[in-house]
Design a protein around this nucleic acid. Structure first.
Ligand SMILES: [Mn+2]
Ligand SMILES: [Mn+2]
Ligand SMILES: [Zn+2]
Ligand SMILES: [Zn+2]
Lengths: 157, 157
DNA sequence: CGGGAATCTGTAACCTTGTTGCATTTTTCC
DNA sequence: GGAAAAATGCAACAAGGTTACAGATTCCCG
């Protein structure tokens, strides 16, 4: 059980405790990979791709393990996916939003990071529209994030 | 020039003429592949993936050719891409909407087809929001299309 | 504790979508 | 008709993601 506390993973004690609590609450096995992945997502303010998570964890875990870890967390409801313009999934914790009703996201064309736009209204259409039954909806933007557009606040627009 | 009229492609005379006109208007080379791809998109009321287009054309053209054909049409402004939940691009003619401001789309979980929801309001956010510069926006739904939900009109919901 | 069942992990192999290089074929225009 | 420009087919490649299976962890209960 103490093997879970692998020192090299970039997860501090508080985050690790929180991750363990989340796993416990869902009745999931407590494994190093899961603690590490949840830790990374807890410390991130934006969704992350499998590759970004793996990099953050210094490739200490196999690609497949990360995918499967995310799948477990997802089916437990702890994590959900957001789709973006490029064809990679972005994963984030299901704290304020869920896979079927998610705030909009913006993917920055310059730095490639996906940001959460929590201030914008998520619901565009209700459960059914014109014969279509709507299960999930997501809004995606492409553009430039504030960090990448220093001219944003000097620009008159 | 008559080689363009390959009889086996599922494109009738009117559609072929329309495709040739579009190519002429944009100053693009008139090739069988382009006429065929435009024809398929003209006859489709919903966006199609490369694979769907290739199937419709009975794999008479190489995958790469279809991709490059779509790239040409796209840079000429005749076609644009919409992204969906799965990681494949969906291509449609740029008639009523464009890549940077597109009506919402719904991908049916049952038949896998992507439908255009032209009645819904496209614009959610303006060009800039809270420091983010927005270049493109797209809304995507997952659900069941009317053809796949016969219970939709008998259901009380 | 200790041991067995259930579950997770790593490795390898595989699939799909999409792109690139290069030689050959078409298209255009004169 | 013939040359330049562009498009095509083929092979190879890359990235994201999934599956199979053997070996390692985790859990639970006595
Ligand atoms: Mn988010
Ligand atoms: Mn559409
Ligand atoms: Zn950025
Ligand atoms: Zn359907």
């Amino acid at each position: 059980m103490d093997l879970v506390n692998r020192p090299r993973d970039p997860v501090d004690t508080n985050t690790r405790t929180e991750a363990l609590n989340l796993l416990k609450a869902k009745g999931l096995y407590k494994t190093r990979a899961r603690v590490a992945v949840i830790g990374v997502l807890l410390q991130s303010d934006s969704p992350m791709s499998q590759d970004q998570i793996a990099q953050r964890l210094r490739h200490r875990y196999d690609r497949v393990t990360i995918y499967r870890t995310l799948a477990s967390l997802r089916s437990a409801g702890l994590v959900h996916r957001a789709f973006t313009g490029n064809r990679t999934w972005q994963f984030e914790l299901s704290r304020n939003c869920w896979e079927d009703q998610c705030h909009p996201h913006l993917t920055c064309s310059r730095c490639g990071k996906t940001h959460c736009l929590v201030g914008l209204e998520p619901p565009i259409a209700c459960r059914s529209y014109n014969g279509f039954v709507i299960h999930r909806q997501q809004v995606h933007f492409e553009g430039i994030c504030p960090q990448c557009s220093p001219c944003a606040h000097t620009d008159g627009h």
